[in-house]
Design a protein around this nucleic acid. Structure first.
Length: 470
DNA sequence: TGGGGTTAT
DNA sequence: ATAACCC
């Protein structure tokens, strides 16, 4: 499936992850194969792209009148994102609506609980990046990693042939470090910064979105460096500045891959920052966390990350959820499930593949342990129902509701009182249609354009005080 | 704290 | 099925 160069001696040591065939997305080196050159690339060049306040940007594209106003995107009682106008006035991410309104009474809020528009725009970005280079990995809706090593190697070759060595960095250099053009690692990263600039430019001119980029030798470093200059700028990290970037992580949880749980366990060991991790005896750390996690953490703390950029293509699951103050009767549960299913069936229909598994997730109220008391049950979808996903026949709906209510009763004894605060339905184990042919690659494109003059989306939220549920 | 996603166990 | 991670 992949033009894989025959192995040589030097291959043994230098074979890097990105050289291996990728699982999905039709990824592979394009153009003429040049084995010797590709293999000599001991260094990868990775771009991390991070769109600026993504939800707010999408809203401003849909409704340009919002552009010069302080804007917040609201989900339930939270302002999950705000534009820079609002941030200047003190409205930060994940602020309570109440606090945000206090800080900034002129704040305009739009409801962002329906992610459809964001999701569609997000895939357009990933797809656009995929036009430049096949190795694009998504992280959430607003971030992408791009492995531009191959592009850099091509440009490096051209540069070396053209005898004129005028290369100029695009954007910032981390720490303002001096560039050494005799160091090919520097030159590669500079070429990477030029590519990053082109990617950002394309995303802006074709989709109207601004964002930041970081350029470095692996995913971890590119992600860390991309945030150094914040709205709509980019930064490249040269190898000599790597220790500085790593040291700037004052708290261990800022290392991507180390979340709340491990951070707390590490803190119990007296480990607060990256330097502490490295100073800590490996054996003791492995005894505490297990070998796999301990070794990963120590690598990350040194800025080492060999994980490849892995394109996923279309999503591997579709889910829809809703949270609320209270849901305590089976009838309400059924209504909520029907709502969730409507949205999901539509999305699955547009996708074209068929799910083979359904899952229901609930969250029960508990005053202690405020969040994260979720449980779920899943089951295979009966084959005769699977067939019906392609058709628009709405008689899939009630059998699915029945299945989901059975799953619900596995978790909740409906004769006893209950108090739910969240319901979620997830379809997974997606498979292409048996007929084949059309379902190939390309991966995802929906037709949707901003409503031009057709009025605002009626999504503005005037009154925040309304409650859901009973 | 939302409304999603992923992988590892 | 859960638990961890990411946004």
């Amino acid at each position: 499936m992949e033009p894989f160069p025959p192995p040589t001696e030097q291959d043994e040591e230098e074979a890097e992850d990105w050289l291996r065939p990728q699982p999905a997305g039709g990824a592979g080196p394009s153009g003429p194969s040049k084995p010797a050159l590709a293999r000599s690339a001991a260094h990868r060049v990775i771009v991390h792209m991070d769109l600026d306040c993504f939800y707010a940007q999408v809203e401003m594209i849909w409704n340009p009148e919002l552009r010069d106003k302080p804007l917040g995107v609201q989900q339930k009682n939270l302002v999950v994102t705000s534009n820079y106008e609002a941030r200047k006035l003190g409205v930060q991410k994940l602020m309570f609506v109440k606090d945000a309104k206090e800080k900034c009474p002129q704040l305009v809020l739009v409801n962002g609980e329906d992610l459809t528009a964001y999701r569609e725009m997000s895939y357009k970005v990933t797809e656009l990046l995929g036009e430049f280079c096949p190795l694009v990995e998504r992280l959430g809706l607003d971030e992408n990693f791009v492995d531009v090593t191959e592009m850099v190697e091509e440009r490096l070759k051209q540069l070396q042939q053209s005898a004129c060595s005028r290369v100029c960095v695009s954007g910032h250099v981390y720490n303002n470090q001096a560039i050494n053009l005799d160091d090919t690692r520097h030159v590669r990263l500079i070429l990477g910064s030029q590519i990053a600039e082109e990617l950002r430019e394309a995303v802006y001119t074709r989709l109207g979105l601004t964002g930041c980029a970081g350029v470095a030798a692996n995913k971890l470093l590119s992600k860390l460096v991309s945030g150094t200059f914040k709205p709509n700028q980019q930064t490249v990290l040269l190898p000599e500045s790597r220790p500085d970037l790593i040291r700037s992580l004052d708290r261990i949880q800022k290392v991507p891959g180390i979340g709340a749980k491990t951070a707390r366990r590490l803190e119990a060991l007296g480990i607060r920052n990256v330097c502490d991790v490295r100073a800590f005896p490996s054996a003791a750390l492995e005894a505490e966390l297990g070998a796999a996690l301990a070794q990963r953490i120590q690598k990350l703390s040194c800025g080492e990350d060999e994980s490849p950029v892995t394109p996923w293509g279309p999503p591997q699951s579709f889910s829809d959820e809703d949270s609320f103050k209270k849901c305590s009767s089976e009838v309400e549960v059924k209504e909520k499930i029907e709502e969730l299913l409507h949205n999901l069936l539509d999305r699955i229909h547009k996708d074209g593949r068929q799910p083979h598994t359904v899952r229901l997730t609930i969250r029960q109220f508990s005053s202690t342990d405020k969040w994260f008391n979720r449980e779920s049950r899943q089951c295979p979808i009966p084959p005769h129902l699977i067939q019906k996903f392609g058709k628009e026949s709405s008689d899939i709906l009630s059998p699915l509701v029945d299945i989901l209510l059975k799953l619900f009763r596995k978790m909740i004894d409906v004769h006893l009182p209950f108090h739910l605060t969240l319901l979620s339905v997830c379809f997974s184990n997606l498979k292409d249609l048996p007929c084949g042919k059309k379902g190939s690659i390309g991966f995802y494109l929906k037709q949707m354009s901003p409503p031009a003059g057709s009025g605002k989306r009626a999504r503005e939220v005037e009154d925040v005080s309304q409650e859901e549920g009973n």
